[in-house]
Design a binder for these strands. Structure first.
Lengths: 127, 127
DNA sequence: GTTATTATAGATTCACAATATCTTTAATTA
DNA sequence: TAATTAAAGATATTGTGAATCTATAATAAC
């Protein structure tokens, strides 16, 4: 019952981009990695998922790096979590008790409260 | 970002106890394990945590087994989760950004919504 | 008391996924 | 062409949940 480190890395990297006006500038992963004091190649792997999901852009070559998209403020925390960790549900019931399983219903409701909260917050709220 | 199987096992074992009037009768782990089709020794380890936390009782020897306590209806799902998985927080921030870290605040709030929901449901809601 | 039954504890193994590193390749700029 | 940077692939490392096995302790029935 934990979020992944990768999600933590992603959120903090995004925060760095936001704080450094990276909607107009590009930031190489080296800079991000040393700022967070984590492995650059691993962080790169994480950020690539955000690129794939179209939440940030990346460009190779000199003066390249990662960059926020224009609409970055609207991206929700939920979006980031899903892009990194996937959509796996928090509670996987090993027992198939069918529709009426109250345990599953109950856990599902709790999880929905979490997800709803994550959906209600966006990157704008980090500023 | 998942609950443990152990919690799943525990909840379903409790449900079995509830459904079999185990507030007056004792149910050996063998019966529970075969009902859920899981390892008996492992399930025993899980249930022992509930015993330690005083949510159920156990007695050794012939005619022994696990039994609900009188006040079982008031036990919340949160209680069970904590007894099994511990109180570890869902989001462990690797970066110490101090009090003002908005990422942490935000994730904490989302997590609180989950926990509040788990606290608002009790074993009585499984009946 | 003896035997059978049951939970508990300890040690250990197993399996798998997250995390991390290394190396190569592709893209881009100067 | 040379330098810089992201992406991809392969592989290693690690941590830990899950599970098993064995031994011990407690209890009931006889």
């Amino acid at each position: 019952m934990k979020f992944s480190k990768a999600t933590d890395y992603a959120l903090h990297a995004l925060l760095y981009l936001i704080m450094h006006n990276a909607d107009t500038q590009r930031v190489p992963v080296q800079e991000l990695a040393s700022s967070l004091d984590v492995s650059a190649t691993y962080l790169s792997k994480v950020l690539t998922r955000l690129v794939k999901a179209n939440y940030i852009t990346a460009s190779s070559g000199a003066k390249g790096g990662y960059q926020l998209r224009k609409n970055w403020e609207a991206i929700t925390i939920y979006d980031i979590v899903v892009a990194i960790d996937g959509e796996q549900t928090l509670f996987e019931d090993s027992f198939d008790h069918g529709e009426g399983c109250k345990i599953q219903a109950l856990m599902q409701e709790a999880e929905n409260n979490l997800l709803h909260s994550l959906k209600s917050k966006s990157l704008k709220d980090l500023t």
